[in-house]
Design a protein around this nucleic acid. Structure first.
Length: 661
DNA sequence: AGCACGCCGACT
DNA sequence: GTCGGCGTGCTC
C-alpha cells in the first residue's frame, strides 16, 4: 500500500503511480493533493487511491502532500465523478473544478471553529408573508421536511418577494442543523441581496465570488469547512462549497447564463446543484421571474414542483409597457436613436425629477467602422470579428480578445475612403442624452465603467442616493437592481438580441425585456416602460409587454419541439481549434466521419462540421460539430471513447460543451 | 495541457 | 551552414 494513484488537472483519463515516502504515509490519502514530479517539472495532483503494486517499472516519488486532510471527500467526491461523467472531462479536471485555484497554500481543517449561534430564527425584522408567499413557503417547507431529493421552481414576477422566501427556507434548514448555499448570478448585481442575508443571519453568512482576494478565498473556504459559516452566498463556483450537510441550494435568477462555466469542465451551476442535492437528499430551490425554458419544461413534465408568485408585494402594480414601432417612427429614411414617444417620456421624468433608465445591450459608441468608399469593415486581425468604436478611449476595440487600435483616418484597404461609424452602443446613447438634456445628471453603467473593484458600488450608491437622474446601460442595469425612484425604463432597441443566429434569441429577448421592465415602478410612483422595436409582432416582445410568461412559453416550447431543439433534446458542441485552417477542417471532417459511423445505430444526430460561431479567435481557427440526442449520458460516453487519448481529434484539441448556451 | 524531440523553410 | 516553425508523442 505504498503507492499512490494520482490524477492531474489535464485532459487525460489516466492516473499515474507514485511511491509514497514513509514520512508522507499518513497524509497521502485519497482526496489529498500532492506535488509530484511529472515529466520535466512537478505538478499538483489528487490522490485517488492507494495501491500496493504497479506494473509501471520506474516509479517516481511523491514530493510533498499539500493537505493534512482530504480537500475533497464524501458527496463532493461523488459530485466530481458526476461532473466528469456528465461534462466529458477527466476526473482530475473535475476535482480541480471543485476547489478554488487560489487554494495553493497549505491548509489544515484544524482551525478553530468558533461557531456562533446561528439558527436563523425569524425575528421581528422579518416581514410578514403575503398569502401567495405563505402558500409558496408551505410547499418549500414541505419539501424540506420530506428530506427527499427535489427541485422547486419558484416563478415569481419581479418584486414579488422571492428573496424573503429564500431567507425563510434557509432559516428552516439551519434550524435543523444543516447548511445552505445560495447562488446568485453575479455578486456585483446583488448588493441588496447580500445585505439582507447578513441582516438576517449575521456572521454565519460567507460571501464567495471572483473579486475576493486570494487570502479571502482561502479564509472563506476554511470557515465553510470548519462549520464557522453555515451559509455561503456566491456566484457559480459556490455550488462546490465545502459546507458540511448542505440541505438546500437556492439558485436565484436560475435562467441566467452566468451560471454556465466558460471553460472545461463547462458545467451549469443549476445542473450541478441538482446533481449535488441528488446525492444528499437535498432540495434545490430555483427562483426566476423568467424561468429558463429548460426549467419550466421540467416542471411541466412533473419532474419538479412549480410554485407561482403572480403579484408584486405591497400591492405595487407591474409597470405599463408601450411598444414603439420604429418602422413608423423612422421608416426607410434615416435611422434614429430615440423615438418621439421615448423622448417625451424622458422629458417628463426629468421635469418631475424622477429617475429613468435606458437599456441598450451593446457597449461602445459605434458597432462598426466602415469605409464610405469600398465598404470594407474594420475587423480584428486575430479574431475576424468587427471592431467596436469606443469614444471614451478613441479606439477600435475587439470585444472578444480586447485588441485595440486607433481609428484610421482613411480606409486601410482602398487607401481612399473615410471611415464612417455605424450602429449604436451605450456611449452613443449617453452622448445623445447629454445633447437632449444638458442639465440632467447622466451616467452610464456597463462593463467599461465598472471595471475596477469599487466602481460598481460607487455608481450604484450614486444612483441610490439619486445623484444620477438618467442612467444608460447594458443588461447590467436590467438585472436585480432595486431603485424605487425609477419610474421610466426605455429599451432603445429590443431587437439586438432577437436577430442573433441563436435558437434562444426569443428567450433572451423575453428575459431581457421582462427583467428591465421590472426595474420600473418599484417605489410609490407607478412605472412606465417604452420598448423600441422593428418587430413589434414577435411573440417574445408581445408576451413581454403583457408580463405573460405562460404565453411566451407556450409559443417557444412548440417551436423547440418542431425543430427538435432543447429542452426536447440535448446538444453537445465539439469545437476543434488550431492555427492551420486546413488542418482544423480536416480534423473536423475526420471527427464527424468517425462519429457518424458510430451513431447510426443509436438515437443521436450529427450536425456539421461547420465554422464555429466565432470562426477565428486569437489567431486560432475553429470548427464545430454538434451531436444531438435525447439524453446526455450516451453521447458523452461515445465522445469519451472517440476523443481518446487527450481529448483530441487528429491531434488537435477538442473542447466539449454539453448543453451549450 | 506543457514540454521535449525532430524534421523542413528563410536568414546571418 | 543554423535558427525556428509546429507536428508528434509522452508524462508514473
Amino acid at each position: 500500500m505504498r503507492i499512490a494513484e494520482v490524477v492531474f488537472n489535464l485532459p487525460l483519463e489516466r492516473a499515474f503511480h507514485y511511491l509514497i515516502p514513509p514520512a508522507l504515509e499518513s497524509t497521502a490519502q485519497p482526496g489529498a493533493r500532492v506535488l509530484a514530479p511529472f515529466g520535466s517539472t512537478s505538478r499538483i495532483g489528487f490522490v485517488v487511491k492507494r495501491v500496493s503494486k504497479s506494473s509501471f517499472p520506474m516509479l517516481k516519488t511523491v514530493r510533498r502532500v499539500l493537505d493534512s486532510r482530504p480537500v475533497i471527500a464524501d458527496e463532493r467526491w461523488a459530485l466530481a465523478e458526476w461532473l466528469s461523467r456528465h461534462y466529458c472531462c477527466s476526473f482530475g479536471e473535475a476535482l480541480a473544478a471543485l476547489i478554488p485555484g487560489e487554494l495553493r497554500i497549505r491548509w489544515s481543517a484544524a482551525a478553530d471553529a468558533r461557531v456562533e449561534k446561528c439558527d436563523g430564527s425569524v425575528d421581528g425584522h422579518a416581514p410578514t408573508l403575503t398569502p401567495h408567499q405563505q402558500r409558496a413557503f408551505e410547499v418549500i417547507e414541505g419539501a424540506l421536511q420530506r428530506r427527499r431529493t427535489s427541485t422547486i421552481l419558484l416563478h415569481g414576477v419581479t418584486g414579488s418577494g422571492k428573496t424573503e422566501l429564500y431567507l425563510r427556507a434557509i432559516a428552516s434548514v439551519l434550524q435543523r442543523g444543516d447548511s445552505a448555499i445560495c447562488l446568485v448570478p453575479e455578486i456585483a448585481l446583488t448588493p441588496q441581496t447580500i445585505d439582507r442575508f447578513q441582516a438576517r443571519f449575521g456572521a454565519c453568512v460567507a460571501v464567495w465570488h471572483s473579486r475576493l482576494t486570494r487570502r479571502q478565498r482561502a479564509q472563506v473556504w476554511q470557515e465553510a469547512v470548519s462549520g464557522a459559516r453555515r451559509i455561503v452566498i456566491g456566484t457559480r463556483s459556490a455550488v462546490f462549497s465545502p459546507l458540511p450537510r448542505v440541505g438546500l441550494i437556492v439558485v436565484d435568477e436560475e435562467h441566467e447564463s452566468t451560471y454556465k462555466q466558460g471553460d472545461t469542465p463547462r458545467y451549469h451551476a443549476r445542473d450541478v446543484a441538482q446533481a449535488r442535492m441528488g446525492l444528499t437528499r437535498g432540495v434545490v430551490l430555483l427562483g426566476s421571474a423568467t424561468p429558463s425554458v429548460e426549467s419550466y419544461y421540467e416542471a411541466a413534465q412533473g419532474r419538479s414542483q412549480l410554485v407561482e408568485l403572480p403579484e408584486r408585494i405591497a400591492g405595487r402594480r407591474l409597470p405599463s409597457v408601450d411598444i414603439v414601432d420604429m418602422r413608423d417612427e423612422f421608416g426607410a429614411r434615416r435611422a434614429g436613436l430615440l423615438s418621439r414617444r421615448l423622448q417625451r417620456a424622458l422629458e417628463r421624468a426629468v421635469q418631475r425629477q424622477e429617475q429613468a433608465m435606458l437599456l441598450l445591450n451593446r457597449r461602445g459608441f459605434a458597432r462598426v467602422a466602415q469605409c464610405r468608399q469600398c465598404g470594407t469593415v474594420m475587423r480584428c486581425r486575430r479574431c475576424a470579428v468587427t471592431m467596436v468604436y469606443h469614444a471614451s478611449q478613441q479606439q477600435l476595440v475587439c470585444h472578444y480578445c480586447n485588441f485595440q487600435t486607433a481609428l484610421p483616418d482613411i480606409c486601410g484597404a482602398c487607401r481612399k475612403g473615410v471611415l464612417r461609424l455605424r450602429g449604436i452602443g451605450t456611449e452613443r446613447v449617453e452622448s445623445e442624452l447629454h445633447r437632449l438634456f444638458p442639465v440632467a445628471s447622466i451616467s452610464r453603467m456597463d462593463s467599461d465603467t465598472t471595471k475596477s473593484r469599487e466602481s460598481h458600488r460607487q455608481l450604484y450608491d450614486a444612483i441610490k442616493t439619486e445623484q444620477v437622474g438618467l442612467l444608460v446601460g447594458t443588461q447590467m442595469i436590467a438585472k436585480g437592481l432595486d431603485f424605487p425612484q425609477v419610474t421610466l425604463v426605455g429599451v432603445v432597441s429590443a431587437d439586438t438580441a432577437l436577430n442573433l443566429p441563436d435558437f434562444r434569441a426569443g428567450e433572451r429577448t423575453f428575459d431581457l425585456l421582462t427583467q428591465v421592465a421590472g426595474r420600473a415602478g418599484r417605489g410609490a410612483q407607478p412605472g412606465q416602460v417604452v420598448i423600441q422595436t422593428y418587430c413589434p409582432a414577435h411573440y417574445a416582445i408581445r408576451a413581454a409587454t403583457r408580463h405573460d410568461y405562460a404565453a411566451f412559453y407556450a409559443e417557444e416550447i412548440q417551436m423547440r419541439k418542431r425543430l427538435n431543439l432543447p429542452p426536447w433534446t440535448h446538444l453537445v458542441e465539439l469545437t476543434i481549434h488550431g492555427t492551420s485552417h486546413a488542418r482544423v477542417s480536416e480534423a473536423a471532417e475526420g471527427l464527424a466521419k468517425a462519429l457518424r459511423r458510430r451513431i447510426a445505430t443509436r438515437r443521436m444526430a450529427l450536425l456539421g462540421p461547420a465554422p464555429h460561431r466565432i470562426p477565428k479567435l486569437r489567431r486560432s481557427f475553429r470548427m464545430s460539430v454538434i451531436v444531438k440526442g435525447r439524453t446526455v449520458a450516451p453521447m458523452v460516453e461515445l465522445l469519451r471513447s472517440v476523443l481518446q487519448p487527450g481529448r483530441r481529434a487528429h491531434g488537435l484539441p477538442v473542447t466539449v460543451d454539453v448543453d451549450p448556451l
